[in-house]
Amino acid sequence: MCFEILSRARAFGGTQLVCRHASRETGTAMRFAAFVPPQAEGGCKVPIVWFLSGLTCTEENFTVKAGAQRIAAELGLMLVAPDTSPRGQGVPDDPEGAYDFGLGAGFYVDATETPWARHYRMKSYVEAELPALVARELPADMDRQGITGHSMGGHGALTIALRAPERFRAVSAFAPIVSPMNCPWGEKALAGYLGPDRVSWRSYDACALIEDGARLPEILVDQGTADTFLTRELKPELLEEACRKAGIALTLRRQEGYDHSYFFIATFIEDHLRWHAARLG
């Protein structure tokens, strides 16, 4: 096996794993969590849903807080949640210690600027290296993949799917950063990792990708109306307009009174997993 199992726990008839492996892309040890449903026991391959987490998170947040294992076990879905950035000795962090750049804030890009370019290669890690590892070592049916995520991870899910629509049968997001080019979190991250040329940012912006011709059949997004980041950072109306112009079927549900927390995710994760299961077959 090409990864080390750090923990294993029985859950709803399936198995929750936390794993670590040496990453070629990041040059560090990387951790990820994988829930293997009971339908996969005996080697039967099952559909996989990727969950990308947001700023400050690790693979643990979704695994522990979302309560997703019960419904994933019922539906026969494998859940895989990677970390949000490289970590370890020699990996640079925001020099001011800010939460929205550096460790825990990889933004699912391949950095090109010094000193970030050496380790911050989360695009290639999530798009290529980790899926290859999972396909080789776990009973995942890679012909039936879905992707979702929260906040920065919602940005990651949307952009990864828009760049490779043939790979994903289902796409959703919780409170995603829909246009990093047009919000403080995204402008800081993209400028820091990629440099000042905004043209190079467009492949990491869901709205820009859609404007440039990328298409998905449909997208599900949940957004809380009491989210303190709603108007400054998230701006779901930009995705709404981009999808309207492109003819993409966007289901944008504005959830009254819900905030940005995992209480919001835990409330609606069942809806998202059923959305994915219906499309993954």
Rank of each mutant, 00 (worst) to 15 (best):
M1H: 07
M1Q: 05
M1L: 01
C2T: 15
E4W: 02
I5P: 02
I5N: 01
R10L: 06
R10S: 15
F12V: 05
F12D: 13
G14I: 13
G14S: 04
Q16E: 08
S23I: 08
S23W: 00
E25L: 05
T26L: 04
G27E: 06
A29E: 13
F32L: 03
A33K: 00
P37A: 11
P37T: 10
P37L: 07
P38I: 12
E41K: 05
G42C: 14
G42I: 13
G43M: 11
K45I: 04
P47H: 07
P47W: 06
P47R: 12
V49C: 09
W50S: 06
S53L: 03
G54S: 04
G54H: 02
C57H: 13
T58W: 00
E59S: 12
K65C: 09
G67F: 05
G67E: 11
A68C: 06
A68Y: 12
I71V: 15
I71K: 03
A72T: 10
A73N: 05
E74M: 03
L77V: 09
V80H: 07
D83L: 01
T84N: 14
S85P: 07
S85W: 07
R87H: 05
G88D: 10
V91P: 03
P92Y: 09
D94M: 11
L103I: 15
F107R: 00
F107Y: 15
V109S: 00
V109P: 00
P115F: 04
R118K: 14
Y120C: 04
R121C: 14
M122T: 02
M122Y: 06
Y125A: 01
V126E: 12
L130R: 01
L130P: 01
A135I: 13
A135P: 00
A135H: 04
R136L: 09
P139I: 12
A140G: 14
H150W: 07
H150M: 15
S151W: 01
M152R: 05
L158Q: 01
L158G: 00
L162M: 07
L162D: 12
P165T: 14
E166S: 07
E166F: 04
R167P: 07
R169A: 12
A170C: 13
V171F: 02
A175V: 09
P176D: 07
P180E: 08
M181W: 01
C183W: 09
C183V: 11
W185D: 07
G186Q: 08
G186V: 07
K188I: 11
A189I: 07
A191F: 12
G192K: 01
G192Y: 08
Y193D: 06
Y193H: 03
V199E: 10
S200T: 12
W201I: 14
S203P: 00
S203C: 15
Y204R: 08
Y204E: 06
A206E: 03
C207I: 11
I210N: 03
G213P: 02
A214F: 09
R215N: 06
P217Y: 10
V221L: 00
V221T: 00
Q223I: 10
T225N: 03
T228V: 08
T228M: 09
F229R: 04
T231K: 10
E233Q: 10
P236L: 08
C243S: 09
K245W: 05
G247Y: 08
G247C: 10
I248H: 08
T251Q: 15
T251W: 06
R254T: 05
H260G: 02
S261V: 04
A266R: 15
D271H: 13
L273M: 07
W275E: 04
H276P: 02
A278F: 01
R279A: 05
R279N: 07
L280E: 11
G281S: 13
